[in-house]
Design a protein around this nucleic acid. Structure first.
Length: 518
RNA sequence: GGCCGAGUACCCAAGUGGCCUAAGGGGACGGAUUGCAAAUCCGUUAUUCGCGGGUUCAAAUCCCGCCUCGGCCUCCA
């Protein structure tokens, strides 16, 4: 089975085969977060779709070398001056942290030097990795044993300087009269191929955000910065062009080449990365390495709306994943809500949608428990490798196992997650408790979940405060059970109402009463 | 102005020329179950695909026009 994926560069759906040859790993680079604040659900939609792609490639047997950067350098606040002006976002984050500290809003035990940009980046990078692992981002889980797969640009400045030197030597970059080094877009005729923003189109567009004074020193208005000398900047390094900092397109070109090679298979990011970021990366990488292409396939996830509107702090519809964890929503439900809409369509994140996903995952978990119970009761081992064993298992193939091919095929078809979910649901409805195929079905379900990544993540992250609650709830449930045994239903219902007022919903089952936060 | 997407039931969403009188989930409604609930399980829930034309034996799917929404055009996932 082969994975087909829409390539932004060619605008067509293409089969993914390792560039290095059959059986070789797929080299996959994802643009990761910039760590001057907590990542929000929109960021995670893009990261999780990259994760689904990676897991789908693995499902069909590819080895995937996946790298995701954690950007801690080079982002400016001032959008009217794209050539490196404005304030460093780390400096702004430091001020914000300082204010939060004064207001007593930082979590207990947080000690951070808000004047040190590296400490700020480290603080948010750590929080990002926590969030990412909760949501099952495989690259972040692997990072624990192999830290280099999530590189930090601040530790790769040498590679960036080398790249700039190569570009200058090759005639693709120049130092302007303001001291900054710029990429010469006229030296790269394919500029604009990815985004459609060809130099011709850019000129017609006559962007109003271009600052005339800065444009004056450049050979072409679209030339972009590679190195900015600035002895007063909060994060700066020595370079042949003076102490300063690198342009923000440089990091991915340098780190992808360092960790994956000059040409890679797939490069991903959010749709807003298409231009200018990825367009500029292509120009830099191809020019520096004298190669035809930088990445064979470009994978872009469209933006997320929240409750039908563009996400914005001022609208009150801005969520970080931590906000949602705090509401008692499980990581699995958030993960599913963020990946169930096709990656090439804008999705609309809603709290209702998260609840839908929660119920969906709960149901799959129940099916899995049932299969596990039934399989262990039957004592039937998972099918072994021998031909005889396998044919015996085939005779007994259950609804989930027989849906597996279709499920995988849906994912291979440009990551049709919604269709795959539909196939799984139909199969779940046909699972019965008395079946001799439980072990086979269970194995198939677990394989499906190796892509969905939700079944082992369906537990709410509880806080310290929650433990007090559970002690109270348990005490009330004992009282209620006593009342019910005495057929004092008025009292038992009163206790149930009291629990409901505490935000606790209860279920009477054959094994006793269970509860959860409503 | 340039480039790129999208409009399918109350909500989310699959379907890109005939197997579509349109998957799947949520909700709602009906049934089973329950002391009553909740949860669970079963069933019902779009003759119709933004609007108007056209092509075709056949259109949600192709073509033309229109309307609406979203993204990018040097902060951004």
């Amino acid at each position: 089975m082969k994975v087909r994926l829409t390539n932004t560069l060619t605008r067509s759906c293409e089969i993914i085969e390792p560039l290095a040859g059959p059986g070789q790993p797929i080299r996959f680079y994802s643009c990761g977060p910039t760590v001057y604040d907590d990542a929000h659900i929109g960021n995670f939609r893009s990261f999780l779709n990259a994760d689904i792609l990676r897991r789908t490639l693995e499902l069909v047997g590819h080895e995937v070398h996946h790298v995701m950067n954690i950007t801690d350098v080079g982002h400016m606040t001032d959008d009217t001056n794209a050539d490196g002006g404005g304030e460093d976002k780390m400096a702004v984050a430091g001020r914000r942290l300082l204010e939060a500290k004064k207001a007593g809003q930082l979590p207990l035990g947080t000690e951070i030097d808000a004047r040190n940009p590296y400490a700020i980046a480290e603080f948010y990078a750590h929080r990002f990795l926590e969030d990412a692992r909760h949501l099952g981002l495989k690259v972040a889980i692997e990072e624990q044993t192999n830290p280099q797969i999530m590189p930090r640009p601040s530790r790769c400045i040498d590679r960036m300087i080398e790249l700039v030197q190569k570009l200058i030597a090759g005639g693709n970059a120049y130092q302007a009269s303001d001291g900054a080094v710029y990429f010469d877009v006229l030296s790269f005729p394919k500029y604009g191929q990815l985004s459609g923003n060809t130099l011709q189109n850019l000129r017609e567009g006559a962007g109003e955000r271009i600052n005339a004074a800065h444009q004056a020193v450049k050979r072409h208005p679209a030339d972009f910065m590679l190195w900015k000398p600035d002895p007063n900047h909060i994060m700066r390094w020595p370079s042949p062009w003076g102490e300063g900092y690198p342009g923000w397109h440089l990091e991915c070109s340098a780190m992808a080449a360092m960790l994956l090679g000059d040409e890679i298979d797939i490069h991903s990011g959010g749709e807003d990365n298409i231009f200018p970021h990825h367009e500029c990366e292509i120009a830099q990488s191809c020019s520096a390495h004298h190669s035809e292409s930088f990445s064979r396939n470009w994978f872009h996830t469209r933006h997320l709306l929240v409750e039908g509107e563009k996400m914005a702090k001022s609208k009150g519809n801005f969520f970080t994943v931590r906000d949602l964890f705090a509401k008692g929503i499980t990581p699995a439900a958030i993960r599913l809500e963020l990946v169930r809409t096709h990656y090439r369509v804008n999705s609309n994140f809603t709290l209702q949608g998260v609840r839908d996903c929660q119920r969906q995952v709960d149901r799959w978990c129940r099916v899995r428990e049932m299969l596990a119970k039934s399989a262990s009761a039957a004592g039937s081992p998972a099918p072994r490798g021998s031909a005889a064993d396998r044919s015996a298992a085939d005779a007994d193939i259950g609804p989930i196992a027989s849906a597996f091919e279709q499920f995988a095929e849906a994912l291979c078809d440009d990551l049709n997650v919604a269709k795959a979910i539909g196939i799984l649901n139909e199969a779940c409805a046909r699972v019965s408790e008395t079946t001799s195929s439980s072990a086979v079905d269970l194995a198939a379900l677990n394989r499906m979940d190796s892509v969905l990544g939700v079944l082992d993540r369906n537990t709410a992250l509880t806080s310290i405060a929650a433990d007090d609650l559970s002690a109270q709830v348990d005490a009330l449930l004992v009282l209620r059970q006593t009342a019910r045994a005495a057929k004092n239903f008025a009292e038992s219902d009163r206790i149930r109402d009291q629990l409901a007022a505490m935000g606790v919903q209860i279920k009477d089952g054959p094994q006793g009463t269970t509860w959860n936060r409503a």
